[in-house]
Structures are given as C-alpha cells and as structure tokens.
Design a protein around this nucleic acid. Structure first.
Lengths: 240, 240
DNA sequence: GTTCAGGCTTGGTCAGACCAACCGGTGGTG
DNA sequence: CACCACCGGTTGGTCTGACCAAGCCTGAAC
C-alpha cells in the first residue's frame, strides 16, 4: 500500500479474470458492429493484434475459444472467417455428451432429435410469419420437384426442415438439430446410397407444412412424429 | 519401416486440420484414463507440454478451447482444474443464444428443454422397469415430504426428474437435460428466493409418475407439458 | 488466352523471457 | 505452543520474435 501522500500511481487493475475473454468479447462486438455474417472474413491476426494493442498469443487464444464455440473458423493461408454471427451479448452454453453411446446406437440420438424436432414444429405452427410460410412453401416445392425427378432429395429435404427451424423463432432449435444431424449422418456410410431412404416420409412433409401454415401445433407435432417414425423404421431395416 | 526403393522419405502428413484439436483430444483422453473428476487438478502446463512434445502456445490454445467449452478452468498461481469430466469420445455441441435480456434466454432454453423432457417422459412410460418405478416412487415421496415440510424442494425435485431420465433407458436425455438445467438455473440469481417458485407444479408430479408407472406415454407427455407450462408462467411473472 | 512459377499474405507452431497471483515453508513473535 | 508476517518457488498469463506451411495472387512466358 503506497503512502498517503501519494495514494496511487494510477494503477488501473488489469484483467480481474480472463484477458482472452475480454478479447473474445471485443471480437464479438466487432463482428456485430461491422455487420459481419456467416462466411465473412475478419482482419488478419496481425492487424487485429495491432488494433487491439495486444500480443499475438492473447489474440490467438481468443480466436481459439471462439473457434471451439463454433463462432469462427481459421483457414491457414487465407484468413479467419465467421461461421455464426455473434454480438457482445451472445450467451454461449456448450453441451457435452458422451459419444461412446452414440456409436452403437443412432436410435438414441434420434430419440432426442424427435423431442426437439416435434417441439420446433409446434413452435413454428404458433409463430410462423407470412415470410416463413413463403419460404417453407418454396423449399417444399423444390424438395418435391427434386424428389420426383431424382428419386431422392437429401439436401432439399434438409433445406425444407431448416425453414421450419427458422419459422420456430427459436435459434436454438436450428443449432442443436444442425449438429445433431451432423453427427447423426456421420454414423452410417452412405446415407443417400439407398435412393428410397425415408422416401415413404415424402407425403407427410406437405401435411406438416399445411399444419404449420394453418397454425395447428397438434397436427404439426403428429406429422413430425410420423416422419421420424419412418426414419426410425428405415434405420432398423438398413442395420439388418 | 524404411522403404525398399525409397519412394518416400516417410512423410507422415502433419495435422490435416487443427493441432490444437489434437492436443485437446489428448487432454480429454488423459482426463478419462486418469479418472479425473470435477475439481481434480491437471499437471502443470510445463509438464504437459514436455510430455506431449509440443510448444506452450499449442498447449495453451488447447486448454483455452477446453476452457471455452466448460471442461477446464485455469487458476493462476494454482493450476488447471477439471470442471466437467470428458473423454476422447466426448462430443461438444456449443450453443449460442442472443439474449438481450435474461427472460428471453430462459424461454428459449426452456422450449428446447420441453421438447426433450416430454420425449424422455414418453420413453420412460414405454420402457420403465420395476426398479425404475420403485426408484421414482421413492424420489417422489421424498420430494413431497420435503415440499410439505419446507415449502420448497429444489434438489428433491431434481432428484425425482433424474429418476425419470434414468427410466427412459436413454442416457442422452440425462446428459443433455442435466446441463440444460444447469445453464438454466444459472440465469437467474436466486432461483429459490421465491419459495413458491413452480410450486403449483407440485401436484402434477404425482400424476406424471402414475402415467409413467401405468405405461401411458400420452398422459406422461401431457403432465410433463403441464409442469413446464407452470415453470414458463412463473418465469414470465418473475421477469416483470 | 491460358498456364504456371514465384513471391506475398495468412494462420500455425515454437522458443524464451518476464509478470502476477498463489502456495507453502520458515522463522520470528506473542 | 500458537500465530502470523515474510519470502521464494510454482503456476498460469502475456509479450516478442522468429520460422514454417498452405493459400492467393500477380505477372511473365508460352
């Protein structure tokens, strides 16, 4: 403690906790204020560390954290890119699940998926806007077109479901399901090798759309269950 | 194994992507194999980097990532500690939620919770064993006892729901919901300040138990929804 | 106009150094 | 004997500077 005559030589206490956290927050704020969206590029690390007045280590640790949180993606020789836009008020809640169980059973993940997927459909039926309906309708048309012309419709199917998650008004649905789907599909080798995989679920998609469009949560839940029940059956068939 | 004609000087391609990822995985494996649990201490950074044969930067970036994922916690002058045990097979799904105010974040996570919670109750109603029923019954009795004597029942309520997750036969439910609950309760400061919080959900718990015991998935889903609806209303009330 | 080689940029890694907070033992003091 | 101030070693936190490898981009050669 300095003498009374000279109370304190302006000792602004440094980071009470986590310099990397501060930097990560600064980057988040930058992403928000600069209006960066998914795919956009951040300034180079050298520029950032100069602008923030910090060493490269600190900058890199912050980037590393945001990378682990799925916010950023660094590509060597190219730059650092935004994967999902964030702001300074973004709250991160990382979940961890033991994947050993998943390896021998995607049925377990499918069950969790069903719960979330049903709830998302119900939320969409309650909150969908006119734009949501238009988006879903377009995606559904495209999906049916691809399905009829090619017999299968992997990406188009995903696109349709994404519009549903979007219509739910709760971004968490899309985030959870996106990753769950990712790890889900990684388990079997050729999800689209069987051109008729989950093909029987095809007609239910329009019913699901109509239920959401008409604002009928119960029907939306029912049709979502029907689709996932078919997926479940087909998985059982394929694993025999 | 030196090549016969020396077509290649053994050029094991280095990290295709992410050295930090490899290190983080190595640390996860170590935590698993060493049987470390929450609160246990890791070797010092100097030891780790020597043992792994890497520079400190790489080690620190990996630790930084695991820290962002809530797995580790570094305390300066003391060491690095485990917050939640993981293994090499642990799957991380980082969620980000844009929460201008707490109540919004609460509602968003609650919605996801509801989906999973309902599905877990239905699964439990389908698959519960005699031991499950006994466990649930005990937990319910204890919860009711605590509730009547103390007016509130946080931990006992959690214990009851855990028996449901267990009865579902799907470990993923427990894993996801446990963490979702954790984040959930961290959002507001004094979850148990209001002794009557979610108190109205009290009677529904026995109905939920009976539905699961009787193997009635539809009723189980209904009562689970009723409980969470009350939680939702109370959140709305408290945030006013 | 196409191709490709070489240089520049960018992220990735390493090494060494110093700082600040913490921990534990040591020795003095009551 | 109990207590506590002190001090040095340990540990995470940060900075600097250097080098590497992969992407990219420009410009010369064909």
């Amino acid at each position: 403690m300095p003498p009374a005559s000279r109370p304190r030589p302006q000792l602004d206490v440094l980071p009470p906790l986590g310099r990397a956290r501060q930097v990560a927050e600064a980057l988040s704020r930058y992403i928000d204020e600069a209006g960066l969206e998914a795919g956009d590029r951040l300034p180079s690390e050298r520029e950032l560390m100069a602008a923030l007045g910090i060493g490269r280590s600190s900058l890199r640790e912050a980037v590393s954290q945001l990378q682990a949180l799925g916010v950023l993606e660094a590509r060597i020789g190219s730059g650092t890119y935004v994967r999902k836009p964030v702001s300074a008020h973004t709250l991160h809640l990382p979940l961890s699940i033991e994947a050993r169980n998943l390896a021998d059973g995607l049925m377990l993940t499918l069950e969790v998926r069903r719960g979330i997927e049903v709830e998302a459909s119900m939320a969409a039926a309650r909150r969908r806007t006119a734009e949501d309906i238009a988006r879903m309708s377009d995606a559904l048309d495209e999906m049916e077109r691809v399905h009829l012309s090619e017999g299968t419709s992997g990406p188009a199917d995903l696109a349709f479901h994404l519009t549903i998650y979007q219509a739910s008004g709760n971004p968490l649905f899309g985030q959870v399901l996106e990753q769950l789907r990712g790890h889900f599909e990684r388990f079997w080798d050729q999800p689209f090798d069987r051109p008729d995989f989950a093909g029987r679920s095809f007609p239910f998609h329009r019913q699901l759309f109509e239920a959401i469009r008409d604002g009928d949560p119960a029907a939306a839940a029912r049709h979502t269950r029907a689709i996932l029940d078919i997926v479940e059956e087909d998985i059982r068939d394929m694993s025999r």
